[in-house]
Amino acid sequence: MYPIRCFTCGAPIGDKFEKFKKLVDSGMPVNKAFEELRITRYCCRRMLLTHVEYIDDIVELDMLYMKKKYKR
């Protein structure tokens, strides 16, 4: 999952990932999206730029296999 805070400076950025993704998916250039979200430092910018979100795959796997194995 996307981290709550920037690893380097500690600024809260967890709430911005979904907004960032929405803006970039709608065709906005990445630098414009950063300005829109007021992310100015390059430490916080790399958090958004380099993040790979794979929690959805894990949830999907969880739904497929784990639920059958351990009935909760």
């Binding site: 996307y2 809260p12 967890g14 709430d15 990932f17 929690i55 999907e60 784990m66 639920k67």
Partner: peptide
Amino acid sequence: PINGDFPIAKLSAGD
């Protein structure tokens, strides 16, 4: 919380 938009976790069905 200062903001309600921080994602904390994702739950699969029934979690």
